[in-house]
């Protein structure tokens, strides 16, 4: 992989991680976690593991949906 794409992916991962640490609202935390997952993908695809990439792309939204069941907002 060339350097600029690798640096960009590392910036995505670090940005998502830092924002997920400092956020208070659970929805903001989930959005930051999806930025982190977006940064992981170029590393998987660059090695050629396309089946792993497809599996993670299908598992990650399902885990987000299961987490959302916990933090569902109460109707006002």
């Amino acid at each position: 992989m060339n350097d600029i794409v690798m640096i960009a992916s590392v910036i995505l991962i670090l940005t998502g991680m830092t924002a997920a640490i400092f956020n208070r609202d659970p929805f903001d935390k989930l959005i930051s976690l999806s930025v982190l997952i977006a940064g992981v993908f170029p590393f998987i695809v660059e090695r050629g593991f396309l089946d792993v990439a497809i599996a993670i792309a299908l598992i990650a939204p399902l885990s987000t949906i299961f987490t959302l069941m916990v933090c569902r907002r109460v109707q006002v």
Partner: peptide, 13 residues
């Protein structure tokens, strides 16, 4: 698969 998964995640949130 990545794009549809990310869209589904945004939709659910």
């Amino acid at each position: 698969a990545y794009f549809v998964g990310s869209t589904l995640e945004s939709n659910a949130i």
